[in-house]
Design a protein around this nucleic acid. Structure first.
Lengths: 340, 340
DNA sequence: GTTGTAATCCAAAACGTTTCGGGTTATAAT
DNA sequence: ATTATAACCCGAAACGTTTTGGATTACAAC
């Protein structure tokens, strides 16, 4: 059915070798011949069979991405933006993007193994590094190229892009303190995620420095969904002595927190201040607009993909570990502490 | 590096043919031999080279999905949930998922062609059918298997899953009218999208039936983002005689509309009613919770993928066109019309 | 002793491409 | 007239798997 190189060879009267070399722009082919072959190929509607090419070259020109999902109703704007960043860069670099969705655990590692050992991809993107990250252990053990969004602590050395969550949270702490807040709660993210550590550390260290240590009772843990932000906030507001500010570890939870506060009749930004982290597009158009730490997710996806492409091509990375400095976006969800 | 079938053959002293047939569970291989071969394969850590397999079988066991993105900051919870639905089902059926992101237009069709003609995939998922849909025309012209999320009008026949947007909007209309609303505005979606047509038709037809025809000046068009919902709503509220209810064609725009109304000092649900469409998870936890039409996006993704898998395997679809009936989720963003 | 049949096995081809290791011819240099 | 060089071309192998079309053996039935 499809036109093959052999068909072209027959038509133009040259060998398949020459046709192949012409199409791949080798310089040991006469210019006229090259022209003829290319024209003929175009005429005949030739498209290389990538299956055959990949098999021959032992390269898939494909990178993999396995999104960690919690539960079936997975709906995180964070990931769709990250995906777009990777996807567009991958396309620009001539790579396909193979995507899988798995919840962390046994199954997840199987998916990694399938992709890697089945030689389906040339490299992998890892998102949301974890404290004890089997994925990274595995990939390192088989020496498979990968780049992570997120760091790990300690000596383990691998290429990554990350944002400095500690600094980010210190900015948040400073901001809230400057507004007069003293009783500050936080809705943290699951502690096994590396970024949770950094963000918590940032918040705590800054408060400690100012002798305002974080009340352990005011540290809640959510699962990064809006729902959990909502529920944790209701809990926090039920305290006899509720916090005047709530620091959520991502925007989705912050949005949930705002709804909860509003449903309790509070005005966000005056009665209670709420901050997020990520600066997803929705944050700018919430009511009130959300004070948050910007994380250039699209750009990070793009960087990760570019680094991975370089690794795959065997180029040495000029900079294999990028730590971006965060920026605090002050909007209206945070305001002066009220004397309630 | 990798263990091949040839290595196993050498080790066990059988031919590659027999090894291949043993591993593929053919019944013309002695049970003991089969056992031996399989044990040896496992011992040696054999994993079939999928590149070679695919090349040989002329099948990729991969389905493609090209997400239409508008602009780089693409962040739509709708798509991440749809992706999860497809991804999980694909994995269950043994298919890989190849994802690309392109904005509609010239480039987009090139991406389709690359996937199809480069034989990178066995089938395609199409999202958000359009009035004049080149993608579908192309795929039909080359007889490539695909299943769409969304219908088209007229005689064109292809497999799809869709929700009955017309009925959905009629439910919304009924609901608002029952609440006493007479001056109803809408923030529609781009008219080239098929679902825009159905939804607008539903709204208009129901209002017409009740002699409450939709004022053309109250029909705005957004681009499905929160931002556009926000902006269109500000415009609408500036009218001398503003609407008492605003029907947004998706949840994201509805959320933007709520922010706009709130920033104008209005209470959503009493001063002005706002409805959405999709029922993305965020909608349940917004403030106030959003009245919307439920669309089981995850399940639709799953169905689409399953149908496509059947098509690829050459099975005949028992039902190749599914039109789901919508359900109205009444929450607090809609309430009695006030006499402002 | 022939024939039939079932149970095992295998050599070789095939898939479409790239690449290796040349070969041939024409022209320039000696 | 020989040799060197450059320009152009090609046959055949290779990649790892599946499949085609038998081959061989053992045993039962006649």
């Amino acid at each position: 059915m499809g036109v093959s190189i052999k068909d072209i060879a027959k038509r133009v009267g040259f060998s398949v070798t020459t046709v192949s070399r012409a199409l791949n722009d080798y310089d040991d082919v006469n210019a006229e011949t090259k022209d003829l072959i290319r024209r003929t190929a175009a005429e005949m509607g030739y498209v290389p069979n990538s299956l055959a090419q990949r098999f021959q070259k032992k390269k898939t020109d494909t990178i993999g991405l396995i999104l960690p999902t919690f539960g079936p109703r997975f709906s995180d704007p964070f990931f769709s933006e990250f995906l777009a960043g990777i996807g567009n860069k991958a396309a620009a670099q001539g790579f396909d993007l193979l995507v899988s969705t798995r919840s962390p655990g046994e199954e997840e590692l199987i998916a990694y193994r399938q992709m890697v050992q089945g030689r389906r991809i040339d490299g992998l993107v890892i998102v949301r590094t974890r404290k004890h990250d089997e994925r990274i252990e595995y990939l390192r053990s088989v020496e498979f190229p990968f780049v992570a969004f997120g760091r790990m602590e300690g000596e383990i050395d691998f290429p990554f892009v990350d944002e400095d969550g500690k600094s980010g949270m210190r900015l948040v702490a400073d901001h809230l303190i400057a507004l007069g807040h003293r009783r500050i709660a936080c809705i943290a993210s699951p502690p096994e995620l590396m970024f949770s550590q950094f963000r918590l550390d940032g918040l705590q260290s800054r408060l400690d420095e100012l002798d305002l240590s974080l009340d352990p009772g005011l540290i809640r843990v959510g699962d990064l969904t809006q729902r959990s932000g909502y529920e944790q906030t209701l809990d926090l507001l039920d305290f006899a002595n509720p916090p005047s500010a709530i620091v959520a570890f991502n925007d989705l939870m912050a949005l949930g927190a705002m709804s909860a506060a509003q449903n309790r009749g509070l005005t966000v930004g005056t009665d209670v201040s709420i901050t997020g982290f990520d600066n997803i597009p929705i944050a700018a158009h919430s009511h009130p607009p959300l004070t948050t730490v910007d994380q250039p997710i699209y750009q990070i996806g793009s960087m990760v993909c570019e680094m991975l492409a370089q690794k795959i091509k065997g180029e040495t990375l000029e900079r294999s570990q990028a730590l971006l400095q965060p920026e605090l976006i002050i909007r209206e969800s945070s305001g002066k502490a009220s004397a309630r």
